[in-house]
Amino acid sequence: MTSCHIAEEHIQKVAIFGGTHGNELTGVFLVKHWLENGAEIQRTGLEVKPFITNPRAVKKCTRYIDCDLNRIFDLENLGKKMSEDLPYEVRRAQEINHLFGPKDSEDSYDIIFDLHNTTSNMGCTLILEDSRNNFLIQMFHYIKTSLAPLPCYVYLIEHPSLKYATTRSIAKYPVGIEVGPQPQGVLRADILDQMRKMIKHALDFIHHFNEGKEFPPCAIEVYKIIEKVDYPRDENGEIAAIIHPNLQDQDWKPLHPGDPMFLTLDGKTIPLGGDCTVYPVFVNEAAYYEKKEAFAKTTKLTLNAKSIRCCLH
C-alpha cells in the first residue's frame, strides 16, 4: 500500500463567511444568496454554514464600524470581559468565536472560507496562513488546477512579526479568498463568478477527501510576504508620492531593483532599492491607505505537500 500522510479526520463542519468587511460585496451577495438557497454549497455528509460576519458594517456598506474585524481574533480580544464599552467588532468577534470556535479547541469548525474583495488587480487569490499544512496545500492545488487556465495565486502570510489574527483563524483550516479588482461597494459579475467557482472547487475537494480519495504528493507556487511598504510621506505625515503608473495593476509581476515604484507630484520617480527582485501584491489597495500600506513585497517559492487521505471509520 502506498505510504501517505493521513489527515486527522474527515471534514464535518464548514463555514463560509461574507461581510467580514461590509463594503466587499461579492461575499456579502453570495452568502445572502446561499442563506436563501444553499443547494449549490451542500455536499453529502458535510455541514456547510453561510454566515454574515459583520452585519452592521454590511448594512452601512462600510469596511467596519469601530475597528477591523479581520485583525482582532487574538486571545487578548477574544478574552476581554464582555461589555457595551467594547468596540462593536470586538464584541462581534467574541460572538463569532462562540459560534464557530472556540479558537484553538477541538470544537472549532474544521474549515472557514472568508470571502473578500480587493481594489487591487490580484485576480483569484487564496490566502494561506501555514506553509506546513498538507491538507490546505492539497486543497489549493486542486482549486488552482480546477480553475486553469484562469490564474489563481496563493498568498502566504506566515511571518515572524506580522500577526494578522484573522476572522477565519478560529477554524482548524483557515482559508482566505480574495478576488479583484473590484471597487468597494460595487458588485461585478465576473468577480462574483470567479469567487463562486473557487468555493465550488473547494467544496468538491472536501467531498472527494471525505469519500476516501487519496491525493498524491503535489507542489504549489506561493508568494510569501516579506514586508509592507508605506507611501513616501512629508514631515507632516502626508502622502508625498503615489503608486507609479508602471507599478499600478502589476500585482504578482516581478519588481526589480531600480524599477519605478512611486511618483511625486513634481514628476520624480522613486525606484525600488535593494538588490532583490520582489513580487508586489495589494498594490494601491483602497482599504490600506489608513493602514499606511502602499503594497506588500513578496518572494516566490514552492511548497510541497505529502499525499493525504481521509481516515475512514
Score class of each variant (00 low, 15 high):
Ser3Gln: 12
Cys4Asn: 08
Glu8Gly: 13
Val14Met: 03
Val14Gly: 02
Ala15Trp: 03
Ile16Asp: 02
Asn23Val: 02
Val28His: 12
Leu35Arg: 14
Gly38Asp: 10
Ile41Pro: 00
Arg43Asp: 00
Leu46Ala: 05
Lys49His: 06
Phe51Asp: 02
Thr53Asp: 01
Pro55Gln: 10
Lys60Leu: 12
Lys60Ser: 13
Cys61Tyr: 09
Tyr64Gln: 11
Cys67Lys: 13
Leu75Gly: 14
Glu76Ala: 11
Val90Thr: 12
Arg91Lys: 11
Arg92Asp: 07
Leu99Ala: 14
Pro102Leu: 15
Lys103Phe: 14
Ser105Gly: 07
Glu106Pro: 11
Ile111Cys: 13
Ile111Glu: 01
Asn117Phe: 03
Thr118Trp: 01
Thr119Ser: 07
Thr119Ala: 10
Cys124Tyr: 03
Leu126Ser: 00
Glu129Gly: 14
Ser131His: 09
Phe135Tyr: 06
Phe135Arg: 00
Lys144Ser: 12
Leu147Pro: 00
Pro149Leu: 02
Tyr153Gly: 08
Glu158Trp: 01
Glu158Val: 03
Pro160Asp: 10
Pro160Ala: 10
Thr167Arg: 09
Val175Pro: 02
Val175Gln: 02
Gly176Ala: 11
Ile177Trp: 01
Pro181Ser: 04
Pro181Arg: 02
Pro183Cys: 11
Gln184Asp: 13
Ile191Glu: 01
Met195His: 05
Lys200Glu: 07
Lys200Thr: 14
Ala202Val: 03
Asp204Lys: 00
Phe205Gln: 00
His207Val: 13
Glu211Thr: 12
Lys213Cys: 13
Pro216Leu: 06
Pro217Met: 06
Ala219Met: 09
Ile220Thr: 05
Ile226Cys: 13
Asp234Ile: 04
Ile239Ser: 04
His244Glu: 00
Pro245Glu: 05
Gln250Ala: 07
Asp251Met: 00
Asp251Arg: 02
Pro254Ala: 15
Asp259Leu: 03
Thr264Trp: 04
Thr269Asp: 15
Cys276His: 07
Cys276Pro: 04
Thr277Cys: 08
Pro280Lys: 00
Pro280Tyr: 02
Val281Asp: 00
Val281Trp: 01
Ala286Gln: 12
Tyr288Cys: 14
Tyr288Gly: 15
Lys291His: 10
Lys291Gly: 15
Lys297Asp: 00
Thr298Glu: 01
Thr302Ile: 09
Leu303Tyr: 03
Leu303Asn: 02
Ile308Lys: 00
